[in-house]
Amino acid sequence: MLPLALSDVAISFPGLAQPVLSIDHLEVPAGGRLAVTGASGSGKSTFVNLVSGLERPDTGAIRWDGTDITTLSESRRDLWRAQNVGLVMQDFHLFPGLAAIDNVLLPARLARAATAEVKSRAHELLSRVGLARPEQSVETMSRGEMQRVAVARALLRRPGVLIADEPTASLDAEAGAEVGQLLLELANQEGATLIVVSHDERLTERLDRRIRLADGHIVADTAMRASS
């Protein structure tokens, strides 16, 4: 469970006059649940990339529980992300040819972190997301099932923060609702800070707080009713 603090963060891309994202101040408490909305091009994806350490801002500090990830080298950020961040993306990014369980374990295996404990946790997570056949190949799954595998993968190494980028956008309404529910439940059970970037009102309205981005700035910041 990690608290997040952004200060004076700005990032520009070459050829664009305006910064794509500029946030003077944002804090999310440990275990907080933040929804990020906005039109496409508003800077949502850049926000995910910055707070997950995939990208470094031009200026400013991004602190997760005191660790300013903007000061880490690329390899150190990879390591930090592997240990602290669970990512769920719109396109699942599962690897064809591998079984569900192997997909869940793949990043941990590549990082040489797949201990026996991690493996048994992978099985447990698969059953918690409602998948009974860990050896099933991911190509044979429905999109909803695939995203559940991705959720299990994100939670494998007990991340302090779970970041979901449009987790329901490529799913039908029913599957999307199930995955949204799973994210909320599991983040709560695991005690992870949750950041969800989404257009999906039914998902975002269930989080504690919602910010709206436009042209790289926070234009609205709404506290929602606590639902858990």
Binding site: L54, S75, D78, V85, M89, H93, L106, P107, L110
Partner: peptide
């Protein structure tokens, strides 16, 4: 490149 990028994003070391 997408797959490779995803591997990195999910925590595979470079």
């Amino acid at each position: 490149r997408k797959q490779i990028g995803a591997l990195r994003a999910f925590g595979a070391p470079r």
